[in-house]
Design a protein around this nucleic acid. Structure first.
Lengths: 218, 218
DNA sequence: AAATGTATTAAACAAATGTTTTAATGTCAA
DNA sequence: TTGACATTAAAACATTTGTTTAATACATTT
């Protein structure tokens, strides 16, 4: 009987499912969907090869569950709430936002694959892209939009706000996506805690100068 | 006898080799090394499946040949020479540089896969990454470095110059790499000739404001 | 023309990989 | 305890995919 596997909705019932989701999240985030094998996932999860199909139907079912899992367990180690406070300047909110992105992308802690998976999905999309965009990316983008709009002022057109958003996120993601190249191009560039903080500061300064310059030029 | 295939050095001798290289360049650039199959390449090149192994040894041999081919046939549809002229302002040179990158990345013409392949290799590195960095990426990066240094002035530190370079290229590449996401996030964002030109203008303005602001803040 | 070397083709091969099957094990209620 | 059900495990299966083989056609040289 095709499609008959015992998952009820999206709830995690077994400890094996939990381990599979965590292991899969890591590997998918690191290597992307195509390059990762279910055998690798099962090895890391200390589960049998058949576990993926039993619990999640197939590989894409597991991937979808990982996305769902990442979304519902958005533990927000680096809270994005700072970016909504209206008692601090837009510049400070921009700094908080960029720190959130950069710190998430370079966190090497245990459940740190959420942001990396999002970044992966952006450059190597799967069938889950629509869900990822609507549930994870768009909410983040909207926060950035309000910050950018505040700095650009009322003269900023929608087009300009959009392009500036993309300029800012592009800077952040580049450091993660192009790391192998950056490492070779600039061996002196490290990504330890201090450097990551300096990186967030740089992108903030760079973008702030740009936004203020653009606002002034109107 | 392993490794015995009739290629002499890196020269292209057969018309089949030519077709294979062109087809492979396209597919590799579009789908990345792992996702592309040699059967797909051979189909596009109207060649037999064994052609790849006969002419290039194996799949990675073909990939290496494609890199070599792309390097020697750097036809420079969008010349980078403008960025070396000393009779124009650094700001204008920056504009030329960004136009070169953006136009290359969004050119849909026939031999347009060169830049896309470089962009691919940046986010999905293969064994050829070292060669790609040294022969294609570093020269480009050095041109950008001199431009950035000129705008930042003597007060700009090496670290600052480096981070600004990455901020600029990051903006450019993001529009290519994240296109599926951008399309969903901003359906109104198009990438036709006019929009691509506007995009290059935006990134130039954005980066110029940033650099000038940073130079001033010293 | 015969011979030799090169190129192409169809078929087969081998390894990797997602998936299924079947049996064994464990769990819990009747 | 027994029976029903869920879970795990080992093995087999089927497909994909990179690669090789063996035969054939083509071109060039002798």
């Amino acid at each position: 009987m095709a499609g008959m596997y015992p998952r009820k909705g999206t709830a995690v019932t077994t400890e094996t499912q939990q381990r599979l989701l965590e292991a899969a999240g890591e590997v998918f985030a690191e290597q992307g969907f195509h390059k990762t094998t279910v055998r690798e996932i099962c090895r890391r999860a200390r589960a049998n090869v058949a576990a993926v199909n039993y619990h999640f139907g197939d590989k894409v079912g597991l991937y979808a569950a990982v996305i769902e899992y990442a979304h519902s367990h958005a533990l927000e180690k680096y809270p994005l709430t700072e970016t909504e406070r209206q008692d601090i300047s837009a510049a400070q909110r921009l700094h908080s936002f960029i720190q959130h992105i950069i710190f998430s992308l370079f966190d090497e802690g245990a459940p740190a694959w959420r942001s990396k998976l999002m970044a992966r999905e952006m450059i190597e999309p799967t069938a889950a892209l629509d869900a990822v965009v609507e549930r994870m990316i768009r909410p983040t983008a909207q926060r950035l939009e309000s910050i950018v709009r505040a700095i650009l002022g009322p003269a900023g057109t929608d087009q300009q706000v959009r392009l500036c958003q993309l300029s800012i996120i592009g800077q952040c993601l580049h450091h993660r996506h192009a790391q192998p190249v950056i490492q070779r191009l600039f061996p002196e560039q490290q990504y330890g805690p201090a450097e990551v903080k300096a990186l967030a500061d740089h992108i903030t300064r760079f973008s702030l100068c740009a936004l203020q310059g653009l606002a002034q030029a109107e």
